[in-house]
Amino acid sequence: MALDIINLTKKFGDQVALNDVNISINKNEIIGLLGPNGAGKSTLMKSIVGALKIDEGQILLDQKDITTHDIESKKKIGFLPENNPLYQEMFVKEYLQFVANIHGIKKNRVDEVIELVGITPEKSKKISQLSKGYKQRVGLAQAILHQPDLLILDEPTNGLDPNQIVEIRNVIKEIGKEKTVILSTHIMQEVEALCSRVILIHKGNIIQDSPISEFKGKYESLEQAFQSYTEAKQ
């Protein structure tokens, strides 16, 4: 799986959300997408999955433009957005079967994913009855159901208790061995636990793109490095 983002610019009126962004990913890895609130992370992720129209530049997935090959590209991408839009009145397994039918996936894959994300005891409940943590798991299940080559996760452990966080991190780590994962999070421990590479975006600009050890550099922690890089660009 190769992802190339070339001179990507996105504006909302006079506000520049992404400013001439260039990123290249050509191997299976888990990448931490970092940045303060309003930095452009969600805009970047939504542009990659085709949820936002590209103003300027190009996004290539396996050397094919996602705009002109939109259906083909979306089949290769899984996405868990921050607000996790689920159908609250559907039952868990019913919802995942609905998603599987859209992708043309065999029924046994639904049971595999239910087991993988740890929602077997909840599969017969309505989604509206689930805790926030279990709703996150259902969202993750729909994102990986079709075994995408590229998985984009926006705050995937939001609302989970410490045990659930460890479990979901383990799931993401396993996926990252065979797929490319772009993970947006504010939790630096999550980045250290999962990511080999960090992309730091601030005010719509990529200000760091490096292996995690290089990103941390001379600083004692990732938090210090993050603070220093973003404060320097105020």
Rank of each mutant, 00 (worst) to 15 (best):
H69L: 08
I31S: 04
I30Q: 06
G38N: 06
K64H: 11
L160R: 03
P121F: 01
D111M: 10
T180P: 00
K216T: 12
K125N: 14
L140P: 02
E82A: 12
E89M: 14
N84K: 13
N158V: 15
K132T: 13
P156F: 03
I152L: 15
N84T: 14
K179R: 14
P36A: 11
V110G: 06
I168N: 10
S228L: 02
K11S: 06
N101E: 14
S24G: 01
A39L: 03
L151F: 09
N22G: 01
E223L: 09
K46S: 12
N205V: 14
L140R: 12
A225G: 04
S124E: 13
K53H: 10
A232L: 04
N22F: 10
D209E: 11
E174M: 12
I31Y: 04
M1A: 11
I182F: 08
L34K: 12
I182P: 05
G57H: 09
K135S: 04
N108H: 14
A39N: 10
E72Y: 08
L116T: 11
E112F: 08
L145P: 00
L44G: 05
Y219I: 08
D161L: 10
I119Y: 01
S196D: 14
M1K: 06
S184M: 04
I175L: 15
E190K: 08
E89I: 09
G204Q: 13
L61N: 03
